[in-house]
Design a protein around this nucleic acid. Sequence first.
RNA 1: CCGGCAGGUUGCUUUAUCGCUCCCUGUGUAUACAGGGGGAGGAAAGUCCGGGCAACGUAGGGCGCCGUGCUUCCUAACGGGAAGAUCUCUGAAAGGGGAUAAAAGCGUAACAGAAAAUAACCACCUGUUUGCUUUUUGGUAAGCAGGAACGGGUGAAAAGGUGGGGUAAAGGCCCACCGGUGGUUGUGGCAACACAGCCAGCCGUACGCCUCACGGGUUGCAAAGCCAAAUAUAUCCUGAUUGCGCCGCUGUAGCAGCGUAGCAAGGUUGCCCGCUUUGUUUCCGGAUGCACACCGGAUGUCAGGAGGGGUAGGCUGCAGCGAUCCCGUCAGUGAUGACGGGACCAGAUAAAUGAUAAAGGAUGCUUCAUACGGCUUAUAGCAGUGUGGAGGAUUACAGAACCCGGCUUACAGGCCUGCCGUUUUU
Length: 138
Amino acid sequence: MENPSGKIDEKARFRFKKEERLCSKIIIDKLFTEGSSFLVYPYKVVYIDSDFPGEFPAKAAFAVSKKLYKKAVSRNLIKRRTREAYRLNKHMLSSDNTYSKKALIFIYIGKEILQFPSIEKSMIRIIERIKKVSIQYP
RNA sequence: CCGGCAGGUUGCUUUAUCGCUCCCUGUGUAUACAGGGGGAGGAAAGUCCGGGCAACGUAGGGCGCCGUGCUUCCUAACGGGAAGAUCUCUGAAAGGGGAUAAAAGCGUAACAGAAAAUAACCACCUGUUUGCUUUUUGGUAAGCAGGAACGGGUGAAAAGGUGGGGUAAAGGCCCACCGGUGGUUGUGGCAACACAGCCAGCCGUACGCCUCACGGGUUGCAAAGCCAAAUAUAUCCUGAUUGCGCCGCUGUAGCAGCGUAGCAAGGUUGCCCGCUUUGUUUCCGGAUGCACACCGGAUGUCAGGAGGGGUAGGCUGCAGCGAUCCCGUCAGUGAUGACGGGACCAGAUAAAUGAUAAAGGAUGCUUCAUACGGCUUAUAGCAGUGUGGAGGAUUACAGAACCCGGCUUACAGGCCUGCCGUUUUU
């Protein structure tokens, strides 16, 4: 908005600060009770339209089931790889008015810990699907 | 050298790109940007003990429950640790595992076995009855009465062991030596205890109950406090006012004071005594002389508290001058302590401390080359050791959540110190 040169946008492109992470317990509860979802292996993605301050197209959270992965180390590894894939590709979601703002949760349901390249591939497919879903027709 | 045991220590490195969180400085009113710096572990794990800290409870006493249980020491404390004592299992050894309060009383001991503790199944001995035999003051078989723990068999365990005397046959029945137990004296040790002497024939083992000593209030940082936001004052208690009962004073409307005791229930975070709080036995009516039982009523307002309801955001707690960490010296066998110097060292909260790529290191494996000495069926082959190259593999266990001290469990590999040497080889 106030950066016609687009420089800050360029810098902030790969940033992923606390404002872009989904922290509110209320929204998370709402997501699980009212949200829609789709599957792109190895993820289940839950999303809902949500309004929040800021210029970001979405707020995201990442989850790994404690039942599938009992050790904290492996859960951390999956969440870190997922977060990294989201951080590197979230610029594809633009913050135009043509798209509604979203709250997202990525739930890892794969039974094996995948390497980063295949995780990134799935993430790109997920983001394209979210784009499709959130087009607003005025 | 190799194999093993014990203790300690360490537990991948570098570069590039893109990020996360906290602190400081600067620009900057908020947001934000730039620079600099900090950012997982020895177990952060299990949540098994012990504390700190916090809230609540608590006059005091008794009983119960739970935990611990050789000795001395260490420690803030411990069920932890160090050094030691006795017994026992295991190992060739270095070592490793386990047990240990006291004993007055009581209980249990599967299967097998006659019997598991006031022992008699077989065999043994004595007496006697009957039968058989005639080797007739004997022998033998069966029964009865008794003696006897020496032999056999069972068992995890059978009433100390060996030898001798003694006896009908035997037996600590008696004696010598050995072992144990108890008493006692001496020596050593702070002590557990050890060793030695003397005395007593006193002589099964295991487990449990009981007993004794010491310790233990409960819940946990989602504790606890504050702010913001938000819903709703159901119910209960206390005080004031109005009102109830009794008594007193003035005097017919006010004022001041009191409400004992019994019973029941609750609280006292297992129970009881005790303590404490509340209710009731009070009044009126249904309802009729009295009593009991039953049903209904004994108001409203304000303030405070309990409780309920709401919230699930932020701040403090909470990032620590400390049972702190590092180095050194001294004391001590050691756990540990004292002193001196230096340091201030993660703080996330759907939860940071990373992701990706490349190179390197370490350790096995396969293969090739080469060097060394050895063996054989000897210009060759075999296995071993060292060095170098190539390929592929492995690089563990595991992630802080209020903080410490331990314990337990998991862990690829490397390093250091000390100790042991059964088999095989040199």
